[in-house]
């Protein structure tokens, strides 16, 4: 029992990372129905900007986070404007392939620009392990931070999408782009804003990932990005609390598989879960069923 609780705690800490990344995926998907494959690479860029701000420019972590969010948003919006926007009218296949191309480009470009070494991320926030119940369970300051940030981000997103004017515009664009533009909404700007938010979330996730796992690397975004996408689908893609739920579930599943079976089966199990969910309830746990528009 003790071990089970310990493993669930391990899973929650991993899950909050997935949740944080999944929020960015779900945000973009919710508005323009595009799997932004490059989200993991936006995260990587965010992490490197954070690293340079701290290690080279000597900024504190909050300034580093802001700068990293700014640069990532810029990259995100640029990607959208250059690569995705011209394809808005083409089939989904083309956009998806472009997104994959973007992801490959940023990964390989990253390897050339940043090199292939793992870069130690400066530990600007002290890692303090808190031992609970006489050391039976351990929670670290970083885990609490990431958990708190992911919950906070989810609430913030819910608020923006649900209760602000721009959020209303986003929902309108999501529902029907043409009708939205007829109502006087600048669809381009709304989509760019979506990418700003998505990329900022990615940047936060990247910096926190660097802090938490102590290194950054040009390919650091790929696997977590993929897993986070699975999490988003699991919870119901496009549904903000779903990303959260999916992230936590995925983290716990991984921890339990590693703890009670074997780490090497963790990834296969994750993808099996994805496929089962897709077959049984393609809209995800919290998703609403919609019929296809013809």
């Amino acid at each position: 029992m003790e071990t089970l609780i310990a493993q669930i705690l391990n899973g929650l800490s991993l899950g909050s990372i997935y949740a944080l990344i999944a929020l960015g995926y779900t945000m973009v998907y919710g508005i323009i129905q595009l799997i932004n494959f490059a989200h993991g690479e936006i995260l990587m860029i965010g992490a490197y900007v954070g690293y340079f701000s701290v290690a080279v420019l000597g900024l504190n972590i909050y300034m580093a986070l802001l700068l990293s969010m700014f640069v990532s948003s810029l990259v995100g919006v640029l990607i959208e404007r250059i690569a995705y926007k011209p394809l808005r009218k083409s089939g989904r296949l083309s956009v998806l392939i472009t997104a994959i191309g973007m992801s490959l480009l940023l990964q390989n470009g990253g390897l050339i620009v940043f090199g292939t070494d793992f870069v130690p991320f400066p530990q600007v926030i002290e890692r303090i392990p808190y031992r609970l119940f006489g050391g039976r369970f351990v929670v670290t300051s970083h885990q609490i931070l990431i958990f708190a940030v992911s919950i906070l981000m989810m609430l913030l997103l819910q608020y923006i999408v649900g209760y602000t004017k721009i959020g209303m515009a986003m929902r309108a664009v999501s529902y029907d782009k043409e009708a939205a533009s007829l109502m006087g909404i600048n669809v381009d700007n709304v989509i760019s804003f979506t990418f700003v938010i998505g990329s900022s979330l990615g940047a936060v996730a990247g910096v926190l990932l660097g802090l938490y796992y102590q290194t950054i690397h040009p390919l650091m975004g790929f696997m977590p990005g993929l897993k986070a996408f699975v999490a988003a689908v699991l919870g119901g893609i496009g549904v903000i609390p779903g990303a959260m739920l999916g992230g936590f579930l995925l983290g716990i599943i991984e921890a339990l598989v590693s703890g009670y079976w074997s780490t090497t089966y963790k990834d296969p199990v994750v993808f099996v879960v994805l496929i089962v969910i897709l077959i049984v309830k393609p809209t995800g746990l919290l998703g609403k069923n919609t019929s296809e528009k013809v």
Binding site: Q7, G11, L14, Y213, E254, S258, G259, S262, T263, K266
Partner: peptide
Amino acid sequence: GFSADDQEFRPTLT
């Protein structure tokens, strides 16, 4: 065993 992409080792260490 862990795999090359792994970063989270706590479950196995537990």
